[in-house]
């Protein structure tokens, strides 16, 4: 009504395109990230990519100082995330070791401990304190924990003989029987 400027130019098309691409791109980015956050940890049925776990010295698997998930094809893998600063982890440490001792002779089940954001001297002290003999190594670069999108420690992932995740335990196990019952589901 009071506009008197002679030219009334709209927004040039290319600027409009840039704006919309930027806006939609931003929203898509945030949306995808939100989706990732909402997902939580990997779920049974999700594909589990291969990863490499370097072992703490003193642990060896068939003479090698690092293991791959694919090394254990045909075996059931119990993947436990822990840290020496994590109090709840201590509650389940002895139970995990006991379960490992139970299945070790059969050779059908492998226990892997992944040490999340920890320092080596403390981690060793922790392993020694609970006399843990199953394979343990540091989560170098927090790559494995990101792969599983863990939300904290302790968390334990059960991967069956075909390499498929079939059970996720958040928080510490309450008993050896709990661990055994989850493993025995897949052992015939």
């Amino acid at each position: 009504m009071i506009e008197t400027t002679p030219q009334k130019r709209g927004v040039p098309l290319w600027v409009q395109i840039v704006i919309w691409v930027f806006l939609v791109g931003l929203l898509a980015l945030v949306g995808v990230i939100l989706g990732k956050r909402q997902q939580g940890t990997v779920q049974p049925g999700d594909a589990i990519p291969d990863f490499t776990l370097p072992l703490f010295s003193g642990y060896e698997y068939e003479g090698k100082s690092e293991v791959k998930l694919s090394d254990f094809e045909g075996k059931l893998v119990v993947l436990n995330f822990w840290a020496s600063w994590c109090k709840p982890c201590e509650q389940e440490a002895a139970e995990l070791e006991e379960a490992w001792k139970f299945y070790e002779p059969g050779g059908e089940v492998i226990f892997l401990g992944v040490d999340y954001v920890d320092t080596e001297p403390e981690a060793r002290a922790y392993l020694k304190k609970f006399g843990i003999t199953f394979f343990n190594g540091p989560d170098m670069g927090t790559k494995i924990s990101q792969l599983f999108r863990i939300r904290g420690v302790p968390e334990t992932y059960f991967i069956d003989q075909n390499g498929a995740l079939y059970y996720v335990k958040i928080g510490p196990f309450l008993s050896v029987d709990e661990i055994k019952s989850i493993i025995d589901q897949k052992l015939q």
């Binding site: 009071i2 506009e3 008197t4 009334k8 929203l27 939100l34």
Partner: peptide, 26 residues
């Protein structure tokens, strides 16, 4: 929340583009 954010962004930007010519300097 994401939906609301998208809605307000897109509608606001669309409105400004629509009214751009009327918003020229005096």
């Amino acid at each position: 929340f994401m939906g609301f954010v998208s809605l307000t962004f897109i509608v606001s930007v669309a409105l400004v583009i629509w009214r751009w010519p009327q918003l020229q300097a005096e």
